[in-house]
């Protein structure tokens, strides 16, 4: 099996699907000739031509609005929003239009569109190149929200997203883009949307994370293991639809949960997971549910490494719930 970064795995997924399905088109800023600012669509413009890999004007609502029109007409568009920090001009098209089209038309019109967008910190990007806005979108019925944490999952989940009959917001953690290399299956490799992944089995505490924070949890778990604490790690993988069963099963086993996410603490999606655990697993809990998160501030530039949850803070939270 070839070894790939997440960027290479995404590129591979796009190529595989464009070769398989002539309806698939890419559009976005700089996705064509340049191949994307991160290189995710490198080489595709050359292979598939300008009709299928479109460099668009600099307009997020135009990119998503046009992609919706293409999807309605029968194409399978994969739109790129260069940074999720710039997605807000398209918020109306995503939330009011794409997510509601099937419902409001009684199932007549559907929008099988994928919006790829990089999220999170890790590249010294300040608050306009680092945010994690998944919670805004998780609050929108009709939209699926997928966040891979490994190259292999990125490929498998992207193929599943492009083939999904509903609009999918596919959020790519920049922290992982080039830092993690692993074997990725060649050709066909689909990872089902809606299934969390048990990254590490353990019996003492469940760490729940997605995207770039999964790797942080692994580092924290390694430290905790040296201290005799056995962490289980759940990679949520798809925020919507959420695989509650896997999370509940783990927390019922360990009796303790620490949820880790990059976004500001207040209103983050970890709060939703915490509420689910409180509703459905309270009898199994041995300690309060804790969250290790970014802070209720804009994402800082110089102090990025302080803002991001890191193994030290995660370990502290683990110790706290274990000793509760």
């Amino acid at each position: 099996m070839p070894v790939m970064t997440m960027v290479e795995a995404i590129n591979d997924a796009l190529r595989v699907e464009m070769r398989r399905d002539p309806r698939v088109v890419l559009l976005g800023e700089d996705v064509g000739v340049k191949g994307g600012v991160f290189g995710c669509s490198a080489g595709l413009w050359k292979e598939f031509g300008g009709d299928r890999v479109m460099d668009t004007p600099l307009s997020e609502s135009g990119i998503v609005g046009a992609a919706i029109g293409m999807a309605l007409y029968g194409l399978v568009p994969v739109a790129e929003i260069q940074f999720s920090d710039f997605i807000y001009p398209a918020f109306d098209q995503i939330v009011s239009e794409a997510a509601k089209m099937r419902y409001r038309s009684g199932g007549e019109y559907t929008v099988p569109m994928t919006i790829r967008t990089p999220i999170g910190g890790g590249i010294r990007g300040g608050h306009y190149h680092s945010q994690s806005p998944e919670a805004y979108f998780a609050h929108t019925p009709g939209l699926k929200v997928v966040v891979p944490s490994t190259p292999s999952d990125a490929k498998g989940l992207l193929l599943a997203s492009i083939r999904d009959p509903d609009p999918v917001l596919f959020m790519e953690p920049k922290l992982v883009y080039r830092t993690l290399k692993e074997e990725v299956p060649e050709g066909e490799h689909v990872v089902e949307i809606g299934k969390a992944r048990v990254v590490r089995s353990g019996k003492d505490v469940t760490l729940i994370a997605w995207g770039g924070m999964v790797g942080m949890c692994e580092k924290a778990a390694a430290k905790c293991a040296e201290e005799g604490i056995d962490c289980e790690i759940i990679d949520v993988r798809t925020i919507v639809p959420l695989d509650e069963a896997t999370i509940l099963e783990s927390v019922k086993k360990t009796g303790r949960a620490v949820i880790v996410y990059e976004a500001p603490k207040t209103g983050g999606f970890g709060g939703e997971i915490s509420a689910i655990l409180a509703e459905k697993a309270i009898e199994w809990l041995e300690a309060p549910i804790l969250r290790v998160t970014g802070f209720d501030t804009p994402f800082p530039y110089t102090l990025e490494s302080v803002y991001l949850p890191e193994p030290g803070r995660i370990r502290e939270a683990v110790l706290k719930v274990v000793r509760f």
């Binding site: 135009g62 609005g65 046009a66 919706i68 029109g69 029968g74 194409l75 098209q93």
Partner: peptide, 16 residues
């Protein structure tokens, strides 16, 4: 919102 969508549908017609 329909204006950008119509443009996209028209782009798709041209592509096809």
């Amino acid at each position: 919102t329909q204006i950008a969508q119509a443009a996209g549908a028209a782009m798709a017609m041209k592509i096809r």
